[in-house]
Each structure stands twice: as C-alpha cells, then as structure tokens.
Amino acid sequence: MLDVILLFREALLGALVIALGCSVLGVYVVLRRIVFVGAALAQLSSAGIALAIFLEALGVGWGWVTGHVVLAFLVTLAGVVFFALHGARYRVPPDAGLGMAYVVAGAAGVLLIAQAAGADVHDLFLQGNILGITRADALLLLMVVGTVLAVHALLYKEFLFVSFDPDMARTLGYRVTGWNLLLYLTLAIVIAVAMQSAGVLLVFNFLVLPAVTGLLLGRGMAGVFGWAIASGLLAAAAGFALSIPLDLPTGPAIVAVSGILALLAWLARLAWPALR
C-alpha cells in the first residue's frame, strides 16, 4: 500500500499543506464565529474557477489574469471586502448576506460549468480532486501557504487582539478594519489556492473540524493551534491512505476521518474532566 501512496506523494504533500494552512486559519474562523464566512468564501472561490473554465471554453482569455487561481482569488477577494465591511447600514443581517453569497455563487458555478464543460465537473468542485495534484500544484501550495503562515506568525498578536476584543484594540489606536481585512485576505488567498484541488467540502472541513478538535483538547492558544494542526494533518494523511486501498473518494474520506477525530476529542473531554 505504501508503494501506491508514494506514487501520489505530490498529492499527499498538497493535501498536507492545505490541511496545515486551513487548520491554522480555521482557529480564527471558529473562534470569531465566522464559520459560514469560510463556507461562502470557498463557494465564491469555486465560482471563480468556474468563471475561468467558462472563459476558456469561450476562447476568451488574457493570460494569467484569467487563470483559475487568479480568478478564484479575485472573486473570493470581492467576497472578503464585502463581508469585512458589511454593516447594519444595508438592513440585511450579515448571515443573510453569507447565505445569499453561498447559494448564488454555488448556482453560478454550476451554470457556468454546465455551459462550458458538463455537469460532471461540478462534482469535482464539491469533492475536489486531491489525487490530481501535480508537483507544480504542490509547490505553489507550499509557497503560498508558507507565506501566509509566516505572516500569521509575525502578526499573531495583532490578529489575536482585533479578533478577541476589537473595541479595546480600537481604543489603543489599532486600525481594526484594516487588520480584519488583512486577516480575511490571508483567508481568501489560502482558500483560493486550496480550492483548485480540494473542493468546497474539503476546504470547509479543514477550516472547521481541526479547529473544533483543537478547542476540545488544547489549553491556551498554543495548545489549540497545536491540536488543530495535528488533527488536520492526521486526517489528511489517514484519509488519503485509506481512500486508495478502499477505492474511496479521497476528499470525503479525509472529511470522515476529521469527523471521527473531532468525535474522539469530544469523548476524551467527557472522559477526562481535566480537559474541561
């Protein structure tokens, strides 16, 4: 089995990098209670990819500008700006805006793909195509996620403060809207590159479940990040390894392992009161 897995080592590396990046950002997503921002951004990113495929089918293209990653990023960025700046002035509750973005982006993706390639491609959007990750894809993922994580390591104090207590941060002179935009921007970048191969389901999974596992097991922010990263990487590796001999779709297999790990973490918390 190891030989078979090694055949897909670039794909495994890509899955691990996506798991790492999303697990770290997922801690903010879950603690800031913006889980559905993650879902909506993933869906918007898929609509961006669909738009790129549609433009390719039409023969319209301006080089890298209409590339999959770039369009996915631009559409996701538009969502980031809207969600970060959205206020009560529009008389629409933020979660309604998220629901609207999610469903419209999802439908737009299906419609664009139906016109361009065929309905079967939509399944790839939902489930992703982890096994299709090439060496170049893996290197791009590594570079982008590495840069984003370095930014997060350097600006940990700022992201933590504006996320936990924006009012206090504002009082101390922090430009909270700017820091929020930057945080969301890093989220958009990771989602846009991850969506190229992971699909909505898997990206959303990595943004939520590892962080939940981390919160159930970890003490302090370092502990939560540590457990989130460990569970995300374990889910990616185990789901990947199990899907090949069992002939299962890789994305859902990874999601299933993530779910089992979260369940085990919850049971551990029940069993050992010291974790509470």
Partner: peptide, 26 residues
C-alpha cells in the same frame, strides 16, 4: 477602557494573564 465583560467571548482559550497583557500591546 474597561468594556462590558459580556462583550468578550468566554470561548477563547486565553489565560487571564494573556488578556490583561493586551492592555500594553500598543
């Protein structure tokens, strides 16, 4: 500034010392 304590999410895994230290972040 001392905000309403209910405005702070108790779910954040922060030690009291970490929260107090934020007052000097600037």
């Amino acid at each position: 500034y001392v905000p309403q304590r209910q405005s702070l999410d108790a779910g954040w895994p922060l030690k009291t010392l970490d929260v107090v230290g934020m007052g000097a972040y600037d």
